[in-house]
Nucleic acid binder design. Sequence first.
RNA 1: GUGGGUGUAGCUCAGUUGGUCAGAGCACCAGGUUGUGGCCCUGGGGGUCGUGGGUUCGAGUCCCAUCUCCCACCCCA
Length: 424
Amino acid sequence: MLTSRPRGTEDILPEEVGRWYLLEATAREVSRLYGYREIRTPVFEHTELFNRGVGDTTDIVEKEMYTFTDRGGRSVTLRPEGTAPVVRAFLEHHLEAGGLPVKLFYLGPMFRYGRPQAGRLRQFHQFGVEAFGSRDPALDAEVIALAMDFYNRLALKDLELHLNSVGCPACRPRHREKLQDYLRPRLQELCPTCQGRFERNPLRIFDCKSPVCQEIVAGAPTIAASLCPDCGEHFERVQEYLQELGIDFILDEHLVRGLDYYTNTAFEIMVKGIGAQSSIGGGGRYDGLVEALGGKPVPGIGFGLGLERVLLALEAQGRDLRPDGGIDVLVVTAGAGVERAAVRLLASLRAGGLKADKDYLGRSLKAQMKHANRYPAKLAVILGEEELSRGQVLVRRLDTGTQEEVPLEAAVEYCHRVKETCGG
RNA sequence: GUGGGUGUAGCUCAGUUGGUCAGAGCACCAGGUUGUGGCCCUGGGGGUCGUGGGUUCGAGUCCCAUCUCCCACCCCA
């Protein structure tokens, strides 16, 4: 249909746009407080960037990308996430030249093809940060703190921060082998899905809801036990810093990042009450990514969080984020020959910093008043022929219904004063 | 990609076993108050009943297909 939007997309209507201002303003404010600077990258990139940067074997690349061939025959893709493009820009513009670390944040739409459901859209919006150039666990803690600070400023409650370390390319394979060795004897008992996971991603078996799989996996070796000394030390210190910052977390063995580029810290923030998709943000360290995309080995860490899901959570928690769509003054005309004065007064009201409007449909006085009430406007300035001939106008309060005659030249100042005493 | 549900005025919905079934409330507009809103009363505009086929003398009501939205799975934000 010509009059319906593409599946999985949303129009953000005037009614709702105020809450987006709030999210975006909060994101920018908190980012700058932590020393992160905004970067805006294109919404589409060469497909190859995501194949390499996100990973050929991920669901994102295998079945969720909006990929098409442009008129020049190049394959381009609507960005499904923000990290790869930021890394690309970091390399393309040699941002390390300004000195490390480089701390960036972004805000914008992402695209993933899939069946929409609660908290899942084809076009959605993310706020994310990326910090390049340091392996310091204090930076891991900072990035996590920044995310939590964002939620807190919005007064989001009942969050769970899940934390894990996925090790490094040196120790992760060891853990995987240990896990497979442990599971192999009982492989046949696992549910069909998990039998498939055994080779591909054994860590995900921890997430299985099947009681049998749960029981089997209960005594499995933990990744903590397999971390190499460096990774173990790093993980310990991240936890120490988080405690230092007063940030509660839950150690979660099940938290995984699929790719080799991802190292050490992995975290995810969950909230209940927004449907089956309870993750409202996540991130981690990717010390191998910059190199994988053709740069020198520069470590990095970041997060991405879904703004629609944050909004869902805020609504589920009863936060009223509806913006005020009202105005201060509606200029109302009564009688003939006052239109020019009305246009002039409207301009002065606006010039004087008052939110003001007038009727443009030639409506009756009564209809204009009704309009003022519905807008809603705090005040109605009524221009009547008779009063105007004496240089006067009527200023009516919509809340109390009282009105007063004031000189035209004093109207702006008068409205300014009176509107402050109106409710709201 | 897989599965279940859904689709009637701008919005929320009613519509019995296929035969005045095209309706209600809210919203909108006008009038009641020839220069004044919020309450009330009266009247009015507005719908190819998601779309396309089919069954039937006749379908919003039955069948098929398709699309949408919702929910869940996979996975993720």
